[in-house]
Design a binder for these strands. Structure first.
Ligand code: FES
Ligand code: FES
Lengths: 140, 140
DNA sequence: TATAACTTGACTATTATTGTTAGTTTAGCA
DNA sequence: TGCTAAACTAACAATAATAGTCAAGTTATA
């Protein structure tokens, strides 16, 4: 039950973006250098962040990305889900279940409700924590 | 952030064991058939469950496993950790960190405390839920 | 003493993750 | 108008983790 780099990088990258609050967009090359993340990998993540309305993009020279909402309106949960990080601990709680991953006896599965409750606990936390709150976590 | 089969199978297998409350131990072949899990894979899991004092074994003919404690004294958290399932979402919260997995700038890492808090939320849940409570989740 | 079960370790197939390569498109600017 | 910086796209490859298998023991009792 580990977060993947997709999720971890996305949060770090967005935190980095939130530091540049001026009007001009920030190119990913800056984020990549600042956070030591492969530029190409970042680009893949930002495609999904943009499609989910978390960032907006400006193409061409002097272009880049900026947050589409205020940090306090961006939850960690929506960021993780945007980049494809699973926030529920089992497959069977989601819509399109790969058949081979399905619990063979869902009807009588005693653990299903347990994992649902765990997932709810996790998502309640993630959805009530925003990007803005990262600032208060920052060590001095 | 998915549970692996190790964790999921371990919980299901122990629940299965808890159904056979008579004195004689239950062979893994019964659990394997009941839960549709590879016998050899189960054996690997039970090595760790035994070493962590969750089950006890009886060798020889008519042997098998039984719970070493009462279901209400076995938490989901200890089961998951026993079989090697990570219950914290990031590596850097644990003792022996593979170097390549370490966040490169742990000192100034703004997300570290976030993941610690998430991990605490998860573990609080797991450690306050026991095997016994699975019965009340069972659908009729 | 034969057998049913546990025990151990090594091995393999599969899948998921992580990252790379190689481009195309867009738009500001000299 | 051409150069360049940036977003965008898609396919590909390396690596690592997972899931499961196989084979060869060991133990204890019927
Ligand atoms: S059907 Fe969801 S955990 Fe078994
Ligand atoms: S050092 Fe723990 S998340 Fe970065």
């Amino acid at each position: 039950m580990r977060l993947t780099t997709k999720g971890r990088y996305a949060v770090r990258a967005l935190f980095c973006l939130s530091k540049y609050t001026d009007e001009k967009p920030t190119p990913l090359s800056v984020v990549a250098k600042d956070q030591d993340i492969s530029l190409n990998f970042l680009e893949q993540l930002f495609v999904h962040l943009r499609k989910n309305g978390i960032v907006s993009s400006v193409r061409g020279p002097r272009g880049g990305y900026r947050l589409a909402k205020k940090p306090k309106d961006i939850t960690i949960g929506e960021v993780l889900r945007a980049v494809g990080e699973a926030t529920y601990p089992v497959f069977c709680t989601e819509d399109d279940i790969p058949n081979n991953k399905q619990c063979p006896r869902a009807d009588e599965c005693v653990t299903h409700l347990l994992w649902i409750k765990l997932g709810k606990t996790i998502n309640d936390f993630l959805d009530s924590t925003t990007l803005e709150e990262l600032y208060q976590f920052k060590p001095e």
